[in-house]
Write a protein that binds this DNA or RNA. Structure first.
Lengths: 138, 138
DNA sequence: TCAACAGTTTAGAACTATTATAATGTAGAA
DNA sequence: TTCTACATTATAATAGTTCTAAACTGTTGA
């Protein structure tokens, strides 16, 4: 509960009202040592484990999108039936294990800077993301 | 109609029966000079423009998945409400224009080889794909 | 302190992409 | 030609996500 003032400031300073739902979701997403990946469904499960006051599904979606918009979460580009989000918003990349259906971070330092030798006129690069698909070695 | 024998051979040799639906879809997807990206919905529209015999939606899905499995199509990893496919199955990368919601190929030659300095034990790399998100420059 | 308002939450309906179902049709082999 | 396994089809079902409109709440300013 002590940390909450931090989240309240964070939310308020980014123009989001610090409601109890948002603070609770902050606690679940950002009170961890390690960053992690999750789907909306994962988050809903974590919330129901962490609290008795349930948060409506619509609010979970709204909050995740609001946090993504503010840059507190990143969406991970993989084709899947559901969206994956990442609490690690630093620049990094991913392994995607096609056998286990599992996402694993690749530290930015472990990928040599990707050089793109072409541009689109009138557009600026927002991000460069590398997805390394892996499978069981036989 | 002349080219069809080519598709018939192609389908047959990969263990797919050359049905008229599959041949028609081959014509639409592979009879072009340039490769392109499409969603299932795009393909359905192309089909209805190209022929009077309609092909059922289920067949379009089945066929696209069959072609993907055989390596005639690639699925492009971006988060979207629908799946994007690519008739360009060579190794290459993509720009994703977030304002126009548009995918643009990046030739493999325009991206310096991506070096990943970490591995997952027991896994082998299947592909390395770069997604460059761009937005309007202000 | 408190009223007022704009932003937020909520349950449930609606929507959309995709997959499953089960009956009918068809390519290819014998 | 006949048979069989594979394909196609219309439609239903499913699942993730977004919409809606009513109720609620944080914040502002009197």
């Amino acid at each position: 509960m002590l940390n909450n003032s931090h989240y309240i400031d964070k939310l308020r300073s980014s123009g989001l009202r610090p409601t109890k739902q948002r603070i609770k979701i902050c606690e679940i997403l950002f009170n961890t040592e390690k960053t992690f990946h999750f789907t909306i469904n994962d988050l809903v499960k974590k919330i129901s484990k962490a609290t008795n006051d349930k948060i409506s599904l619509a609010t979970v979606y709204n909050t995740v999108h609001a946090f993504k918009k503010k840059g507190y979460l990143k969406e991970i580009p993989i084709n899947s039936d559901q969206s994956y989000f990442d609490t690690n918003t630093s620049h990094h990349h991913h392994f995607y294990d096609e056998n286990q259906n599992d996402l694993i971070d690749i530290d930015d330092a472990d990928v040599e800077p990707v050089k793109i030798n072409t541009r689109i006129p009138g557009k600026k690069i927002k991000s460069v993301e590398v997805l390394v698909k892996v499978e069981d070695a036989e």
